[in-house]
Structures are given as C-alpha cells and as structure tokens.
Design a protein around this nucleic acid. Structure first.
Lengths: 210, 210
DNA sequence: TGTACATCAGTGAACGCGCGTTCACTGATGTAC
DNA sequence: TGTACATCAGTGAACGCGCGTTCACTGATGTAC
C-alpha cells in the first residue's frame, strides 16, 4: 500500500488536535508549525515569537522543528514567504476585479494592500523584519518580488499579464504608490492614526498622481 | 559652595571615559546612558538593545540605570522622545529654510523626513516600536505630536507659526504626504529598494498632489 | 568654620526566566528482495 | 506475502546564554544648625 498523505491529514483533522491520541509521527508537522507560528505572531507579535512555543502548540518536543526548518529563522522565513504570497494574491485579485482602467486599478490595489496589512498585522510586520529572516531563501525572495511585480504592473498600466517583467528597477510612479500605501499601513498599525477614519484612505489616494 | 554641575561635566569630559579614574558618582549618568543606548541601537539595531550593555558602556553596574530610568523601557522611551525632538527640529528647519510657498515646503519637509530616517535608522525604527515604549510618557507623546504638527502645518499652508493648533485630527492631505515619505523611508530601510537612486525620491514627491 | 545627618547615586552578587540548540536515542515508515 | 533494514521524524533531558531586575550595602554629597 503506497503512502497516502491525504488520508493521514484527513484523519488528523477528523480527530482534532486535542482529542488526538499521541502519535509518534505527526503526519503534517510542517504545516502545523507554520499555523502555530502564525497564531503566536497574532497573539504576541513578532517580538513574542518563539520556536519552543510553536513546538508546544503543535504538541511536539522542542527539537522536532529542526527537522523541517533547521532553526527558528527557518520557520519565520517560511511564514513570511507565505505572507508575501497572500499579499500577492489579494493584490492580483484587486487588480483583476477592477475594470475601470489603470488609475482605478492602482487605487484598488492600494486599498487591498492596506486591508491586508490591517487584517494580518503581525505577519505584515514580520515581512519587513529582514534581520529575522533568511534573505537568501529563494521562496521568500520570489514571493516578495512577485508581490511588488503586481504593484509595478498596475502602475505601468499593463492590461494583460500583471507579472510581465518590468524594466531596470522600480519606477518613481510605482515607488510613489507603494510608499504611500505602505506608509499608511505602517503608521496606522503603529498607532499614529485611526485607519478607519471615514474618507481618510480614499482622500489620501486621491492625492496620488501617477 | 553651591553645586556646580557644569564643572563636574567639564572635568569628566576632560579626562575622557577611558582615562577617567573610577569615581563613585558618575556625575552625568543619565546623559551617558542615553548616549550608550543610542550607540547600541546604531550598532545592533532595536532587537539588539540591552540595558545591561548600556550600563556596561557607561562603565556602571547593571543596577545603576534604575535610579534614572526605572527600567529598560524607560531608557528606550527617553531615547525615542529625543529622536522625535530631533525629527521635529529637522522638519522645522526644512520648513523655515524654504521660501517658495507651501508646496515647496511640503516637499522640503519630505526630503528632510527621509534624510533623518536614513541618517538614524535604528532610532527611526525605535520611534515606531510602540510595544517597547511607554506610551504614557508625556515627553514622548508631546515630542511625537510636535513632529507631526510641523508636517500638518506645512500641508495646511500656514505661513507663520508651524505649530498652530490643527483641527479635529489629521487631514487626508497631511496623511498623504506623511504616509508617502514614511513608507519610502521604511521600505528603503527594510531593503526594498535603494533610496539613493537618482531622481527616485524627487520623482515620487512629484506625484504627490496636495 | 565645623559637625551631624538625611538623601542620593552608586555597587556587585544573586535570582529566575525562557530561549535556541544539541544529542544520543527510539519508534514508525517504506522499500528491496 | 514475509522479512531485513535503511531512513525518516520524532523524544526529552541537558546546556549555556544573556537578559532584566532585586536587594542589602556603601560611598559621596549637600544641607541644617
């Protein structure tokens, strides 16, 4: 009988983590550790992250994560890469759902960018904490570039593929819109103002001239 | 003979920290700890900050800082407050040195904001790490509000006092320019792009329509 | 000018904490034959 | 279908680390008289 990973996962899910009988092999520890890490980030913020605690929440000994991520940085890097993928997805969605031309698309992406940051504050924070991440990790770098690629494509007014290769580095227009929404998100998350103030985000985007 | 603090300080400065004979009372420990803390931030970043290390660099025992700052958060808060004062100063300078009207003043402040962040990356980082700071500290809150007040005043086009009280909360125009330069600074410090790329900052500011 | 004394600003040893990581090990899995 | 075995994915105790903070203490300062 060949190994059937899906069957194992289904079984784990059916039993639930609390009722689950202790099993020497977890079956989906990598995914469980990422989920636990994300939960810790949400509850305690980036500075409260701990590999031991992730292992604890996954119901596994402190040495176990090393088999999947090497060290603490490895797990954080995986979480950050996944967050960049999520950001890219919502940017792309916003891009594709907006038919009213390039300018509207840029604004739609900007709103999506801010929404993502406010919905996942700790992940968003982690994404930019380079000293904590393994910037040599190909998945992380690729995910980050892909996310920015969607932003750049909107600014370039490219109609078709939003991932078409862009020229030699970011353009001032792309940097302008990226900086604006990034700054808005960060300042809001850092408590500088209330991002939900009616008209504030749209009023700001009105002042972006690309 | 009345106490003469300046004489004490001068003497300390003249001897220099290495030649200085061990003296039970430091004389200017508060200032020395702030300076040491800033040096640590510059060398190791916010995550590398340590109260013990600051005490070490000031040549004092680990318990000594408590007399001046209470705890580690107290020292960080003092450093952040001082950084906000520095930011306010450069913004005000930029404002006053630019005679070509409100729009030019906004851009001048924006350039000064970015310049400050790039010149003091770790302090700039700390300024926004609220979980590490005592947000109930009046000096910190006042310094932060004063800095933003200068930005807001430029956007309001106020000719005279750049600290005139502003209305009920930040305006979209102020948030737009603040967010843009803040995002630029943060993304640059986080390695997203090279902030010194010729024309990038000015090109971005050209796309701000306030 | 001298003296007693309260207050201030340090010392330095100690405590407890949670962390990341290591390591010899073992149970489970899957494959070769 | 059965069996031997390599490999994989865990255990859990232990180590060392640097940290923030505490505490009984002491040396220096400045003031009251």
């Amino acid at each position: 009988m060949p190994r059937d990973l899906n069957a194992v996962k289904t079984e784990v899910a059916a039993e639930g983590p609390s009722r689950e009988r202790a099993r020497y092999h977890h079956g989906a520890l990598r995914e469980a550790l990422i989920a636990a890490g994300e939960a810790i980030l949400s509850e305690r913020g980036v500075d409260g992250f701990s590999l031991r605690e992730a292992a604890r929440q996954a119901g596994v000994s402190p040495g176990a994560p090393a088999h999947h991520f090497g060290d603490a940085r490895g797990l954080m890097t995986a979480i950050a890469a996944r967050a960049f993928e999520g950001l890219e997805a919502v940017l792309r969605e916003a891009h594709e759902a907006e038919p009213r031309g390039p300018s509207a698309r840029i604004r739609a992406q900007g709103r999506a960018y801010v929404r993502f940051a406010l919905a996942h504050p700790a992940q968003f924070d982690l994404m930019w904490r380079r000293p904590l991440l393994d910037m040599a990790d190909p998945a992380l770098v690729a995910a980050g570039q892909a996310a920015f690629g969607v932003l750049q494509a909107a600014v370039d007014g490219v109609a078709g593929d939003p991932c078409s290769p862009t020229g030699p580095g970011p353009t001032p227009a792309a940097i302008a819109s990226w900086s604006m929404v990034h700054g808005y998100a960060r300042l809001a998350l850092d408590g500088a103002f209330d991002p939900e103030t009616p008209g504030l985000l749209d009023g700001m985007l009105d002042r972006l001239d690309v």
